[in-house]
Design a protein around this nucleic acid. Structure first.
Length: 404
DNA sequence: ATCCAGGGTG
DNA sequence: CACCCTGGAT
């Protein structure tokens, strides 16, 4: 995924006059109405500091300006240069990042600082190209464009969420922006509109537009320099853009996660069939959970029935055995753990841990049946089981303390 | 309480 | 393409 190096043969929805006057309008608006006091901005100086732009852009990938401000200040105070950041202990970096979220990005930031220092030691300077910046951990196409444009005063194109909102509205682009085809169109348009000179001010202006005027709800079209030829505005449909595939409502499914515990305190684990969900991973046995309210059995949705059919052979054996032997949850504690929620692509899965103690005779009987059916299973304590390859949902269940 | 935005990674 | 994690909107 790199920025396009050449313009695709794209037919733009706006006429040439509109395309050509776009940048001048943004630049003029930025001069009078844009933000000029953000501590990482470098457009006021002839000697821009790419470190500050890189640091701020990585923070702004995930967080709004107001939240970033104090974090940025503390980073700059503790790590005034990229060399300081690269030389810092991870713990110190993590401490400064704590609360911002997406901690993998803090790791990328630290890694990126070391990569940058290596580049500087080798070439005497920060990377000077978009591709050079994209080689740095945590820097993708848009962040790279922003850094070159604003941190080096070079030529860079940005196409982040704010820009996409402005462009889809102005050009009436109604393709699903989560699709790569639409992403290409938007990058092509952004590239066509970005002026050779002052691409940094243009980038900052576009971000300010998206953050202050062309906002998701209730955009301030009256104040917008693009109003005259904005297609969404002409349609009175500003908030219909950008178009994003509606995430279809996910159905909910309910299962018991059985913590079958033998007298040694070991739990029964099943290795799931290679095909299907969690193929080859280890899981607690799952069982269909009947939804009840008081004593009344609630009607079960059809998708739940379909899902019930997906239980593995081993689970059907266990379920049948439990029912036949009338084993009940006699030892279910009063503070029984609540269901953990696990969301998959097409449904939400609520897994309710059920502790079920079995005596040695029953454990042996169960083992014999599973062995006869060629099922891969183990009895293991939680501590040992964590070394198995467990899907996230199982980790969640163990973390919930259900097995204690 | 629930939904959703946000850019990059593996 | 799922996932990361928090804050803001409703």
């Amino acid at each position: 995924m790199t920025q396009p190096t050449a313009l695709p043969n794209t037919a733009f929805t706006q006429p040439a006059e509109s395309l050509d006057s776009f940048a001048p309008r943004i630049l003029e608006w930025f001069e009078t109405h844009g933000r000029h006091d953000l501590p990482w901005q470098q457009h006021q100086t002839d000697t821009p500091n790419p470190y500050m732009v890189w640091l701020s852009e990585v923070m702004l990938q995930q967080t709004q300006v107001a939240t970033v401000l104090p974090y940025f200040a503390r980073f700059m105070e503790s790590f005034p240069t990229v060399q300081d950041l690269a030389a810092a202990d991870w713990d110190a970096v993590a401490e400064h990042w704590a609360g911002l979220g997406y901690y993998a990005r803090a790791r990328n930031l630290h890694k990126g600082a070391k990569q940058l220092v290596a580049v500087i030691n080798e070439t005497g300077n920060f990377p000077q190209t978009v591709d050079g910046w994209q080689a740095i951990a945590g820097v993708g196409p848009s962040t790279a464009g922003a850094i070159v444009a604003m941190g080096l005063h070079g030529y860079g194109v940005i196409c982040d969420g704010n820009v996409k909102r402005v462009l889809t509205r102005w050009a009436g682009i109604d393709g699903d922006i989560t699709k790569s085809a639409t992403d290409k169109v938007l990058w092509a348009l952004a590239t066509r509109l970005t002026p050779r000179a002052h691409s940094g001010r243009f980038a900052q202006g576009m971000m300010d537009m998206g953050a202050t005027l062309c906002i998701r709800r209730k955009p301030a079209c009256l104040l917008c320099p693009l109003q005259a030829d904005c297609i969404a505005h002409a349609q009175g449909r500003e908030t219909d853009y950008p178009v994003k595939a509606k995430k279809q409502a996910k159905p909910s499914k309910f299962s018991k996660a059985l913590l079958l515990q033998n007298p040694a305190g070991e739990l029964l684990w099943l290795q799931r069939p290679d095909n299907g969900i969690w193929g080859g991973l280890w899981s607690l046995p799952l069982a269909f959970e009947q939804k009840t309210q008081g004593k009344k059995v609630l009607s079960v949705a059809t998708e739940d029935k379909a899902f019930e059919a997906e239980y593995s052979t081993a689970e059907q054996i266990i379920d049948t055995w439990l029912k036949k032997n009338k084993v009940v949850d006699a030892n279910q504690p009063m503070d029984a753990p609540a269901a953990i929620k696990h969301s998959l692509t097409h449904f939400h899965w609520f897994l309710t841990p059920h502790i079920q103690r079995v005596d040695s005779k029953d454990a042996q009987a169960l083992s014999d049946m599973l062995k006869a059916a060629d099922v891969r299973f183990v009895w293991q304590t939680v501590d040992v089981a964590t070394a198995l390859s467990l899907p996230r949902a199982m980790v969640k269940i163990l973390d919930s303390g259900a097995a204690e």
